[in-house]
Write a protein that binds this DNA or RNA. Structure first.
Lengths: 334, 334
DNA sequence: CTGAAAGCGCTTACAG
DNA sequence: CTGAAAGCGCTTACAG
């Protein structure tokens, strides 16, 4: 492969001049610039990324840690990954994607070895072992999902409490008095998915304030347990007139369950959920729902991270930002 | 950050000795080794990846080009990406994942700048602009999906022709005489997804040999067109007793359609498909199907690539490998 | 407007 | 068993 030295020789200039022509960091005479550009073209020169990284202490790569739970419902993950990848590219960064089960180890590896200029943590848990490591890293990071201790970090998450209140308000206004609430699978809480109880508690609290009868259940994440759970719950609460579903796997499987039971929405039952537009389209879900906006979250995280990488030490104070929930009415309530 | 020089100083040895202790490429006395290890621990030293890459001409990173069509049905992609990422990590490689719309440009960028030691191309099309670029690259590559010209490349794909024949044989043996065949959305062909007509032609040919009446349709990839297409097709072919579905979006949406029409499987209609086990589980699909084995394909591609990166110039001849289809009987035919 | 030189942090022949 | 030195391919003060 051609090096900057080859280009310099071909253009009859020094290596530094070629470098400056590339970076535009100092003025180059028109004629010299042309000779250099021609040489670059002829030789098919592209700067070596490793050498550049070594010289500049910048890799132009963002690490993306995707913490994947294999027994969980997966299709949602891609909705975060793609916008992050897109946003990174727009800012001139590539993505080093790490899916290792041992997230903390992976994080340490890519930051300690300076493979990346910054890091995005996906699916952050209440007590996430990656978070303290990130604090200790040289590189800045941005989180999608809220940990217990947000000190010193840029954090982005949906406002799950507000989302729950909006859904309860919506049903309350329509006159519902007895509501079933489905949370994610119980082991999601065990793992510290704080959004589970943030949503759940807010919903129950709001329901209590209105004097509603609320029935709270954990859902399942795998068939055939999902369908069984639905039937058991619906059998158990025949007088409930509405259901709030905060569980991707459960709501994706709901239409055939209701169909089989002869339940028509919203005539016999009002259904609301919380899932992204893409997800709803994927499963053709006809339910009114809070939009989870994975693209907004992912993009916001990347933008904050890019800003911070740019600013270095003199960066602004860290932000914890809740994305405001939006209700998309698909007519599944009355 | 501590450098190898800091470690050398702390351990009272030369930098080369530290380097050799790290790589194990030459014998080190026990006592020296211990002093070095202690220094490494104390200083929290990790070699700088860029410097190492520059010195060794090896990045230990594999580029993954995921060619994403945004209007297509997405959840299948992750099934390839995860096994590839896992297999790479097991072999000591990280994944630089590129999702740029302009795949050829992205490929050129990461190979020319030597960001990666090798490349995996996903979702390769019949005339894929990335393929000639890959041939011209310094780094080896492996393809998942078959291009027209496989010259000089390691290629992995499902044997779609054989898959189609197996399904037709299966239905023929059961006595079916009139079969509907659903292919992917027409624009997948336009883009050169060769597997579409490899499957389709093989199915039609086999059906013709048996004297079956075969009705071939292109499917849709988005709701509500999917449901409309199903109803139109089923209305049009009331005497067909079986349907072969080679379209993820269409088969995922089939259960509610049949339900609404009062069609029971396999009593009224036999249904077979071609999709991965994970995909079937995700959508709770109760249909007999050819397993597409994305994990096997992804892993095979990575293994071949790793082998080739290891062997350098003296590598073995390139291979084109078809994965043998396997039929999973879920009792949806009779 | 341009060049010579030092330096980024490693690895690896070469020498002893 | 160990060290001194060259080299990987860039960037960037320093000098003119």
């Amino acid at each position: 492969m051609a090096t900057i030295g080859d280009v310099a020789k071909a253009a009859g200039v020094s290596r530094s001049t070629v470098s400056y022509a590339l970076s535009g960091k100092r003025a180059i005479s028109g004629e010299t610039r042309e000779r250099i550009e021609e040489a670059i073209r002829e030789l098919g020169f592209t700067p070596n990324a490793g050498a550049r990284a070594l010289a500049t202490s910048q890799t132009k790569v963002i690490g993306l840690l995707v913490q994947f739970f294999r027994d969980e419902f997966s299709p949602a993950m891609l909705q975060y990954v793609l916008p992050i990848s897109d946003a990174a590219r727009e800012a001139g960064y590539d993505i080093l994607m790490v899916t290792e089960d041992d997230g903390p180890r992976a994080l340490k590896r890519i930051t300690d070895s300076d493979m990346v200029d910054g890091v995005v943590l996906l699916n952050v848990a209440e007590h996430d072992a990656r978070v303290p490591l990130l604090r200790g890293a040289r590189q800045p990071g941005a989180l999608v999902g809220m940990p217990h201790d947000t000190e010193g970090l840029d954090v982005f998450d949906l406002d799950f409490g507000e989302a729950a209140r909006m859904l309860v308000d919506h049903l309350h206004e329509l006159g519902h008095r007895e509501i079933v609430l489905i949370s994610p699978n119980e082991h999601v809480i065990t793992r510290g998915g704080a959004y589970v109880w943030r949503f759940r508690n807010a919903a129950l609290e709001r329901g209590a304030r209105y004097g509603l009868r609320m029935h709270s259940y954990y859902g399942e994440s795998q068939q055939p347990a999902i369908t069984e759970a639905w039937n058991r719950i619906l059998d158990e609460r025949p007088t409930a007139t509405a259901v709030i579903v905060h569980n991707d796997a459960m709501i994706a499987a709901l239409p055939p369950v209701l169909n089989a039971r002869g339940v028509e929405v919203p005539r016999d039952l009002s259904v609301v959920g919380i899932f992204s537009e893409d997800f709803g389209r994927l499963f053709s879900l006809p339910y009114t729902a809070i939009e989870t906006s994975p693209d907004k979250l992912g993009r916001a995280a990347v933008q904050a991270l890019v800003q911070r990488m740019r600013d270095g030490e003199g960066a602004a104070a860290p932000v914890v930002r809740f994305i405001a929930p939006e209700l998309t009415d698909r007519g599944s309530t009355r």
